[in-house]
Design a protein around this nucleic acid. Structure first.
Lengths: 183, 183
DNA sequence: AAAGCCCTACCTATCGAGAGATAGCCATGG
DNA sequence: CCATGGCTATCTCTCGATAGGTAGGGCTTT
């Protein structure tokens, strides 16, 4: 992928994190990158294509990040809470999938499908790492919601308050998951 | 408030629940109600006005609903989990504040302020009903996130799975809160 | 009671801005 | 020499917003 294409995806992701699918335009992206809007169309024919590509890349990057962190810290709960905490404290603040997921019903089908894939990936990984399915759903929901609420009230401490109990009292995942990951 | 104004707010709320602030237009609302878009402007001069009014009303209605339910069921956790579950299973599916809150950074200030007020109201009420602040943040986050994730993956059972532990194991609120409410 | 008047609640018509998308031209480099 | 990756220019839509017109109900004044 060319530098420009990557820069376009970066700009699109940044704006999607703020305003979702309807929160950015080809012209804005083009201005961010320093090209013309028609050049954005060259790399991503339609807006749907661009958004879907951004989410697909984001899903892959998140999965990789989690894998890397699991090597350093074997408790998956701590890893996921910390990862989303990093998102909140980053410049872009929100997870794009949380933003898009909230208005999933109004998304182009390809984009909605990618967002769905993201959350499925998260849940699958949590279960694979040893959490019971319900607990995985709860953790994923709490983390996602904490992001939304912290964003809405503009107070990041909400995230830490909401996730505190998780990082404190939960048992670490069974050893087998960590072992499988290492071999 | 006139019938038409109420119908406009109803239509706006319905569309906001699906697509957020950028997910509806004056013309769509007008068509839903059966008037012209200029008539919508008559009742709500700007789009910001309309959206803020919708959220303000929604906040008040939610507070009233919770109060009513607390008379029947004294455990606030069960009441809130059930209330948002009702939202998910309603025709409109999402809480408008969850949708708008996710893209809070891109909202007109008056609208963002109303969304913030909604979440503050929720947290305040939970604390008032006897929950420790952190637990209130956690419950609110989990419920909100469960809505988002369930919506994104298009599977309502996620909500029940994510909130199951809350409704099962938590202690009911202290008696004083219920007593205060009754006097 | 009739005349005059204003306010409410719509309407038609239109504005300029910005959206996504397309057609076709041009420069560079393998 | 032609494919790649940009560009200019322009299309058609839709957006939020505004100007100005009108029907009719209710008020006051004579």
């Amino acid at each position: 992928m060319s530098d420009v294409a990557a820069a376009i995806m970066d700009a699109a992701e940044r704006r999607m994190r703020r305003g979702g699918f309807n929160g950015f335009s080809f012209r804005e992206i083009a201005a961010d990158v320093g090209v013309k809007s028609s050049s954005v169309h060259y790399h991503f024919p339609t807006k749907d294509d661009l958004a879907a590509a951004v989410i697909k890349r984001y899903t892959a990057e998140t999965a990789e990040l989690i894998e890397r962190e699991l090597v350093k810290e074997s408790n998956p709960i701590k890893v996921w809470v910390k990862a989303f905490r990093g998102t909140l404290h980053s410049q872009d603040r929100m997870c794009p999938c949380a933003v898009l997921g909230a208005s999933s019903q109004d998304l182009p089908p390809e984009v909605a499908a990618e967002v769905k894939r993201f959350f499925k990936m998260c849940h699958d990984k949590l279960v694979e790492e040893g959490l019971p399915p319900d607990e995985a759903s709860q953790l994923l929901s709490t983390i996602t919601g904490a992001l939304v609420v912290a964003n809405a009230v503009n107070d990041f401490s909400v995230y830490d308050n909401a996730t505190r109990e998780f990082t404190r009292s939960r048992k670490p995942a069974p050893v087998k998951a960590a072992a499988r990951r290492l071999k």
